[in-house]
Structures are given as C-alpha cells and as structure tokens.
Nucleic acid binder design. Structure first.
Lengths: 346, 346
DNA sequence: CTGAAAGCGCTTACAG
DNA sequence: CTGAAAGCGCTTACAG
C-alpha cells in the first residue's frame, strides 16, 4: 500500500505535486525548479522549458504555506470590519483591497458583527495566519490583546473608530465636526427643537456625533431636552419607535439629526409615511439620497478614502517607516439636498 | 553577532517565539506544548499551567503556516467576486462568510473588477495559498485553468454566473424566468414598446435576461425593434445615453426593463429628471426602491441565499460528498411597487 | 548555470 | 502522561 504513484501521471486525487516531483520529472535539481517558479535568472532557456513542461504536465502550483514558513512574510493583510453587507464598509474594504493589490498583497477580511469577542477571535486568527498587517474597525474597546502581535511586528492600523488602551495608527472621520455642522445647519434654518437618534453608546462614532450635536446646540444657546436623544441598536424597529417618540411625544421636535446611514434610511421611511413632518439631516451619504422626496441632506463621509488612507499608513509601516503612531482625521462634507432646509412647523 | 536573545525575555522586534521557545521556558518537550496549544488531552494540570504561563510571558501565537504544511487543510475558503463595493455582492459575501464560520473556516475574498485575467490571477493565488475550497463569481468564460486545482482536491462552486468549459457545481438565479416575468408584467399593463437596457453581452446574466425579455415579447406576439435593446457597461454615462435614446429616438418606447441594479438606479435618475415619462421594472432589488417616486417595481434576487446555497454546496463537497456536479437555480420574485404598473403614454 | 544540505515551525507516528 | 525524531514543501546559504 505504498504511494507508488506519487509524482506519476495519475497521482491520487487530493494529493498535489511538489517541486520535488517537478524536479524528478524534468531531470533537474530542486533549486532549479524553484528558480523557474520564481522567475529568477540563471537558468538556460532549454532547462527552463523542460521545467515548465513538467509543471504543466503535473499541474504543479507552488504551496505558499511552505514558502511563507521560510520567508516570514505572507504578503497578506487582514481587515476586521463590522459587516461586509453594510454599504458603508463595502467601499472601505474595496479601497483597502486595491491598495493591498498595488503592493502585491492579498486581503483577508472578516465581519465582527459588532461583537467584541468575535473581533478579537478574528484578529487573532489573522495573526495566527501571520498576516503582515492588520486594519481594524473595532467592535470592542480594549485592544491590549494585540500588544504581543504588534510587538512581534504585525503592522496595525485602526480605522473609523479608535483603538482602546493601546497606542496605534488611527484614521477617523471628523465625527464631532461633521455632526456639529449638521446640527448648526438645522439651527440656521430656524430649528430650535432638534433630536439626535444614533447608534449604541459603546460605539465611538455614536458618542462623538452626539458630542457634536451637543456642541452645536450649546453654541446656539439651545437647551437639549433629555427625551430628544436616543442611542441604541440600528434595527428598524428601535429606530422607528425612537423617531415616533421624538416627533409625537410630549416634547416634539421639528428636526432630526440621524447618527448613521442605517438610522437615516429608517427615518426617511417613517417620515415618508407621515408625509414629511420634520426636517432631517443624516450622517453618512447613501445611494438615492438625492431621489427620495424631499431629497436627504447629509454629512457625507468618504469610506473609500478612510480605507485608502488606513491601508496607505499600513504599507508605510510595512516598508519600515518608524515614527510615533499617527492619528489622521478625514474631513466630512455637508451636502444640502432639501430635507435639511425645511423650515420648522411644516 | 549571533542571535543570543532568541527565546529570551527581550527577543528582537519582529521575531516571534515558537513552540520550541515555549517548551524551553516551561521546561517541557515540544509535543507537550503542542498538546496544550491544541487543547489535546493527556497533560497534567500543573504542566499545562506552566506551559500557559510561558505562552503568555513570551506572547506566543501558533504559526498556522507551519501547521497547514503538515495538516494539509487550511480551514480557509476563497471567494472571487466582481466588486465588494457593489451592494449586490456585499450580502452574498457575508452569507458565504457566515457559512464558512459555522464550519470553522475563514474567508478570503477578492475583487476581479470584471476582468477575466484578474479573476484567474486571484483564483490561482488563492489556490497557491491552498484554500480548501473556492467560490467563484466569474468574470471570464473559460475556466479550464482550474482543472488541475480541482483535480488536486480544491472544492469549487460557481455562483451567480456559470463556469466556462468546465463542469462544476453551480448556483444561479432564475435569470431567464425572472426577466420574462418582468416583461410579461409590463405587457400585462398595456405596454407594447419595451426597451431592455442591460450589462455587457459577455456577462451570462445579461444575455439570459435579454433572452427572457425576448421570450416574453415573443409570447405576446410583439416585435422587438433592434434599437430597443442596449447592452454595455453599467457606467452612468452609458446607461444615461442608452435610456435617452430609447425614450427619445425614432422608435420611442413606453417602458424600460433594466438588466441590473446599477442600470436601474441610473434609469431612476434619468426618469426623475424627465418626470416619470416611462414605466420601469428593474432586475435586482435595492435599498429605498420603495421610497423613490414612483416606487420601483423589481424582480428581486436574493444575494444572501445565493451565497448561502453556494457555500452549503462547497462544504458538502469538503465533507466528502461525491456526486456529479449540481446545478441549483434560485427563484426570483416580482415585487410590484408602482413604476411597473404605470400605463403607456404617461 | 546548477544542485545538495539545512532549516522555517509545526504535527504525525511512535516509543517510553 | 511525556517527548525525540522525522517530515510537510518550500527558500536560504553555500559550494561547485
């Protein structure tokens, strides 16, 4: 029962030919095969041809696991994000992928589903696969588990949200400034009673945007009634009841500032049912925001730019740049389309 | 200049401790460390504790490249898709990821950008990394390059579009039937002059949907004027001019059937500018389709179901099921919202 | 221009 | 319960 077919024309299904098999078939040494496979110089055209023929005949493909074991680098970077199906993260991921590709690297990404335990599990699984670098959109707020990995040389960049309890390169949108602009815009259009409906308070961007809301209100000398602020999951049911409460409760508002695109979309639905009873500005742009009625005024982030910037930092580190951790802020942009310019009392 | 610090408390930045280092520090054999790391039985609680301490002290993390080299399986699957930033592929990718996760596997995905060469490069790079299986949304139409990989045991499933010149498991939407339903719906609402604007003719889904369009027209005894059919890139400019041509050309239509979500979105924009001068049914559902005016009637695909089904087939194969290649068809669903029920001559 | 030997960091198969 | 040896498939460092 010995494996006598190894390297022969009818190898067992599931086994793969190795460089050794190719070398045997081509009648050359192992190192010569390695040279051909890696396009190194110093091989006679005739030898190269024989090796290529053996490669094709056997269906050889280099095993990168073995290669990595010797070389140390995997030419792979990891991306931990919240949810690939979210239209905010798709373009971000794609941007990271393009930068990686330009550097000859592959991207592995995984979704944390907003679960800190899953984020950690994923990030460490990527480290065990020895990614050269890691881009993280964190779900949790304590990232000390990455300290040994970073010490061991895994380049690490956080994006969209900051890292907790470790000091690393970080790329963030100007959440506070963007939210402040949004709310100031509503105030400039005559609103005094403005609600903020956002994501869960343990998410950094949610609290930063809330802070921007409070700043704008305070700068205008406006009090914030506690019932106007609602943070929580972005599930449609939660958002729907939050919106109805701020619109129809004892302290009704005339305008709503939404903390992210999931919230905005549900709010647009609720307002459409009620026939536009409030002004609206959303954080994050979204497809067709210009085509609903009224068109939705937003503070746009640039997810592709966030991804590109983060990946750029990552590869700078991988190229050996050793400077203190950077903190890059990506500006936001107010896009007025109608919903944010509605007067109070509509 | 020897590396005397190896395994010591101050190893060189960038180097990583190995099981050997852990074994030395804990005063045990290599195999014992392996047992602890992999949670195997047969280790004294006291020994285990000493090993765990050494692991923590050194910041050890198992190198999966080395592990893979011995075990043969990587517990990784690859997904080649068109563009992660496309809202159709995000949910599909996420669904594959969830199934992989349920099987303890990680997902590596990459975008082909609709370029056959890049698709091949990506798929083969994944094979070189020895993914256990491959889910492919192809850009090209000749996949014989995968034959050696499949023969070597890489489980392979095509989804959304069929493979070219190889016989493999395939999961497709009912493109022909869905398109036929869409066009029959427009005909039932009185339309006789109907345009089809779709994706490039080398894309299988585009031609299948065109075929469905022709079937419905033929079944109703309606002639198709050549100028009513426009296939090409889904860039907004191309779609815009195609739409204007079928609406305002010498053979104006009263209804448009759009071949995919990118085309539909642009068409909605163009029609909004012209104030709803034609009926519209789109292939693919999209966010806020219910909120634009008129709301958009679509033939909905279920990208998550496509992904789940494909990944399910993949893991069945990985579990050893050996049956002839399957071809699974996922049904589509007509969702009427208004734009497809507009009468001709609006 | 070419190749034999050693070794990357694990797991396997075995022996105690 | 524990560990020494061999080997997975490559690349490195070297010698011819």
């Amino acid at each position: 029962m010995t494996d006598t077919t190894r390297g022969g024309p009818s190898r067992r299904y599931g086994s793969r030919p190795t460089m050794k098999d190719v070398a045997a078939r081509a009648g050359v040494g192992l190192k010569t095969v390695s040279r051909v496979v890696n396009g190194e110089s110093g091989v006679t055209p005739d030898t190269e041809r024989r090796v290529q023929e053996a490669i094709t005949a056997l269906g050889f493909r280099r095993n990168d696991s073995a290669r990595v074991l010797r070389k140390g680098r995997t030419s792979t970077v990891g991306l931990v994000l919240e949810d690939l199906a979210d239209p905010f993260y798709g373009p971000l991921s794609r941007a990271v992928e393009e930068v990686a590709r330009a550097h000859g690297a592959l991207l592995i990404n995984g979704s944390s589903a907003e679960d800190p335990a899953r984020e950690q599990e994923l990030a460490l699984a990527l480290c065990a696969r020895r990614v050269d670098g890691l881009v993280v959109i964190p779900a949790g707020d304590d990232h000390r588990y990455l300290v040994p990995e970073i010490a061991a040389g895994v380049a690490t960049v956080f994006v969209d949200r900051p890292a907790g309890r470790i000091d690393v390169d970080t790329v963030l949108s100007d959440n506070h400034g963007g939210a402040r602009d949004a709310v100031a815009h509503l105030i400039a259009h005559g609103h005094r009673r403005i609600a903020f409906v956002g994501d869960q308070p343990r998410i950094h961007t949610a609290t930063e945007r809330l802070r921007g809301y409070r700043t704008a209100m305070a700068e205008a000398g406006l009090a914030v009634h506690p019932s106007w602020v609602s943070l929580g999951p972005t599930e449609p049911e939660r958002v729907r009841s939050a919106i109805l409460e701020v619109l129809d409760g004892p302290e009704p508002v005339t305008a709503v500032f939404c903390g992210n695109n999931r919230v905005t979309v549900t709010t647009v639905r609720v307002l459409a049912e009620r026939r536009g009873s409030a002004a609206l500005v959303g954080f994050d742009d979204f497809e067709l925001a210009d085509l609903v009625s009224p068109a939705v005024t937003v503070v746009a982030q640039d997810p592709a730019s966030l991804g590109r910037t983060a990946a750029g930092l990552l590869f700078r580190r991988l190229e050996g740049v050793a400077e203190p951790p950077q903190r890059v802020e990506v500006p936001t942009r107010l896009i007025t389309r109608g919903s944010g310019e509605l007067p109070p009392g509509g």
